[in-house]
Design a protein around this nucleic acid. Structure first.
Lengths: 116, 116
DNA sequence: CAAACAGTTGAATAATTGTTCAACTATCAT
DNA sequence: ATGATAGTTGAACAATTATTCAACTGTTTG
């Protein structure tokens, strides 16, 4: 590569070295990006917004968000695997709810940022 | 579609109606998802983590993150358009820095969540 | 048991997106 | 002006991904 070499400049070199040393762990940053990737879809954000208000079954989520059960279920699987939502079966229905309060804090902080 | 209709159930209907009414504005949720989409890439998160420590030029960012200037520049454009970073020219170099403190709060909150 | 409802799953499709490459602009030094 | 360095940009390619459709499992009820 060697594409990124600025002209020899001691100040730059020192800053770069310091920043490199102080960077958060690579894996942590990767995991944070993965978390944001999950939030970065309006369908999933709407699902989480709905679940923030009430525990709901797949069918009702579909009704509220105007989506097929299949589409909702696919997204719920992603949220489940990320441990962002949990579920419990009650007869034929499976009720979903948020698994974590942090999640809501992060989304609300972002909502505040959006509203300026 | 009509795929999402649960069996007639008054309780469900009432919950659905209430949740629907109390849902945040559709556009706000869309914008939040767009913001998260930007954070949902490890390259951009790493760029933001670096800029959180020091104002840096494109070249140095490339050195710290081990990426070509082109790849860095492409991502900076996205961050710039979202008003997440700002820049200033100094001779041949263009220095980038974070444009907003909220951004860092959101990322740090997510980092805490990751670390459990 | 059979029918009906709730939910999941896999394949297919379409759309989005991150990186590379090459060509370009802009600034500074000789 | 020429060359060198810093940065940007557009096209191309590969990879990821959200939704749809159809077929499936699981549960309840008649």
């Amino acid at each position: 590569m060697k594409d990124f070499v600025c002209e020899d400049n001691v100040i730059h070199d020192e800053v770069c070295e310091q920043v490199t040393v102080d960077m958060p762990d690579e894996n942590e940053l990767y995991d944070v990006a993965e978390l944001f990737k999950i939030f970065g879809d309006s369908t999933r954000i709407r699902i989480l917004s709905a679940l923030a208000q009430a525990e709901m079954c797949v069918c009702d989520l579909g009704a509220v968000l105007n989506m097929t059960k299949s589409a909702v279920s696919h997204q719920l699987r992603i949220l489940r695997q990320a441990k962002i939502v949990k579920n419990r079966r009650n007869g034929k229905e499976i009720f979903y709810s948020l698994d974590d309060d942090h999640v809501l804090s992060i989304i609300n902080l972002a909502l505040e940022h959006i509203k300026e």
